[in-house]
Amino acid sequence: MLGKGLKRKLNDCEETMTEFSCAYDCNRTMPYSHQRQLVLNMCLNKLQSYKMLAEPNLHRSVLIANTVRQIQEETRQESSQLPGVMGGDIPSNNFIYTGSDPIDSSLNLPFGINTEITRDTWPSENPLDSLMEVTDDDMSSAISSILKDLDFVEDISPTPAQGSVMDEPPKPLESGYKVEKQDVRGTECAFGSFELTSSTSYLKDLSVDDIFDDIDTSMYDSDFSFSSLMSPRMQPAVEEPLKLYTMCNNSASSNLQVCRTDLNDLDHIIEILVGS
């Protein structure tokens, strides 16, 4: 809508991105975490296409890099807040605040679907790989600093993803996460955690039916709680904050159980999705 008359590359990912950025602009109530994910994706996209520019522009790169840094700093702060929450020494109403609108996360899709969507918005070329190839002049070292930061993000990434709800990372989900990692390599992998953590409330204001109208949504209403399909971080759902809170303080074994069921349910959902 805004881009009327704009020169635009006509490939699918760009178009999808445009839709999202328009959604960002038009839909002021888009969940913050998703806005952030969207901006981050665009930043990385821009940094990736950086070296294709005829005229490398330090000013622009610095501004983009600072935006990435800002987002990263936010995420880091959130992740450092979470362990305290985990300890249970903070009242439960505080627990609701995990930085990414857990209220919305009850209405959500399994993370497998989320990442699927996010992956579609990316060009097939791996952004991180291409960034690595940048020659070693000063400009590129500025970019490589972003890369280092990305690495750091990757290191800390499991913390927000797993630590948010459980004291101990549940093994079944962990393995599921690894599979995910192999699927999306490079930057997408580095930011896989972002996708897991911050796109939780992805569909808050967009009705599921609108976006995935080819998906049979009847199942969501029926036998199992949708929120239990979320990655652990996504579990703080409004319907069951108490259950969740108990879970946090529970022993790891019971967590494991919960997660196994989650994984089974997930398999089930994926089957349905693939089938449809």
């Binding site: 805004l2 881009g3 704009l6 635009r8 991105m17 445009t18 950025s21 328009c22 960002y24 602009d25 002021r28 806005q35 969207l38 901006v39 665009m42 821009k46 622009r60």
Partner: peptide, 10 residues
């Protein structure tokens, strides 16, 4: 209110 799109298209 259009900043995201303006960022996207540079």
């Amino acid at each position: 209110s259009k900043l995201c799109s303006l960022y996207e298209n540079d």
